[in-house]
Each structure stands twice: as structure tokens, then as C-alpha cells.
């Protein structure tokens, strides 16, 4: 009796699930082009997002904060402090008898902490050898593409006061 038998020689699972893996993975030209165009849309949305962020950007109000006492550190020495928030680490360098400079300690490449190299007279990032000028924080060498944000200092009596951070 072959009333319930199958005439085909193919296995039952192949007849009932006739989707081939190779066909399923095949990407047509139209699919690939659609994917590329959607990626292009994503890039455009990213640029629009940056533009909207720039429209609503408000410069933060920086507090005045005493950083150090004048003469507290020797020439060529540094002092670490946080400004304006407790998580924003900064470095103060005394470059001359009456000269002080201060920068954010966060490398603009991947946020490693930079340190002052007295022998080379520059700020150095140990992670990827990014070097910054001690004069203005500009990039001298390495992967960082932006200068270090500078902390603006003022002398207030016998104290150095941080007043602002300039990117």
C-alpha cells in the first residue's frame, strides 16, 4: 500500500523546507546598494546631530578656583589638580620664574593622562607617544589631532586662580 507513501525520492525535510542556504546568503546588487545608501543616510544623520548639538551649545560657566600658591612649586616642577569638576584632571607647570601654564591632563587622542617631560620640555602621552607643546598645548607629534584644552590662570594676590578652560 502506497496510499500514504511519497512518490518523490527527496527526503521529506527537503521537500517541506525547500530553502537553500546558498540562496539565503546570496546578496543581490540591489540589496548591497540599499545597504550602502542606508549607511550614507546614517552618516548624514550623524552630521545633522553634530549640527544640532552645535546649535544648542552653551559655553559652561567656569568657577574661580585657587590652584596653587605662587612659588609653591619650583621651576620645571608640576602640580596636579582638578578643574572645573572633580573628574577633570589638570596639570600645572611652572616653566619660568614667573611663568605658569596649565592644561587638561586628558590626552585628546584616547584620554590617557599626559605628563610633563622636563628634559624635552613638552607634555607627553605615554600611551601612543603623543607629544604636546608646553607653550600652547598644540600637537607636536603622534596620533592626537587636537591641542590640549588650556586652563586660563590669573594671579590673585599670592595665589594662582583658574578661571576658564579653552579648547
Amino acid at each position: 500500500m502506497r496510499w500514504f507513501g511519497r512518490a518523490s525520492s527527496e527526503p521529506l525535510w527537503k521537500e517541506e523546507f525547500s530553502v537553500r542556504t546558498a540562496d539565503e546568503r546570496y546578496v543581490t546588487r540591489r540589496q548591497l546598494t540599499k545597504f550602502l545608501v542606508l549607511t550614507s543616510l546614517g552618516m548624514f544623520v550623524g552630521n545633522v546631530w553634530i549640527f544640532i548639538r552645535s546649535l544648542f551649545y552653551r559655553a559652561p560657566a567656569y568657577p574661580r578656583q585657587t590652584v596653587a600658591k605662587l612659588g609653591e612649586i619650583a621651576v620645571g616642577q608640576v602640580k596636579l589638580f582638578t578643574y572645573p569638576a572633580p573628574d577633570d584632571h589638570c596639570i600645572l607647570v611652572r616653566t619660568g620664574e614667573n611663568q605658569y601654564v596649565s592644561y587638561s591632563q586628558k590626552c585628546t587622542h584616547l584620554s590617557c593622562a599626559v605628563y610633563y617631560s622636563q628634559s624635552n620640555d613638552r607634555l607627553e602621552c605615554p600611551c601612543h607617544q603623543g607629544f604636546f607643546s608646553i607653550k600652547d598645548g598644540s600637537v607636536l607629534q603622534g596620533p592626537p589631532s587636537r591641542p590640549l584644552p588650556r586652563v586660563i590662570l590669573e594671579a590673585d594676590g599670592e595665589y594662582l586662580v583658574a578661571t576658564e578652560v579653552k579648547a
Binding site: 543616510l41 553634530i50 552645535s54 587636537r146
Partner: peptide, 22 residues
């Protein structure tokens, strides 16, 4: 990069050009 460096004036032309390319 420009936005993070504080130069916000380049955001609009970049968005326009990106839109044209899209």
C-alpha cells in the same frame, strides 16, 4: 573633530554637503 575642538562653525556646511551626497 572640529566640533570637539570648539570650532562649531563647520557643522552646518558639513551637514549640508553630507545631505547632498546622501
Amino acid at each position: 573633530e572640529s566640533f570637539l575642538a570648539g570650532h562649531r562653525e563647520s557643522a552646518l556646511p558639513a551637514a549640508v554637503f553630507s545631505g547632498v551626497m546622501f
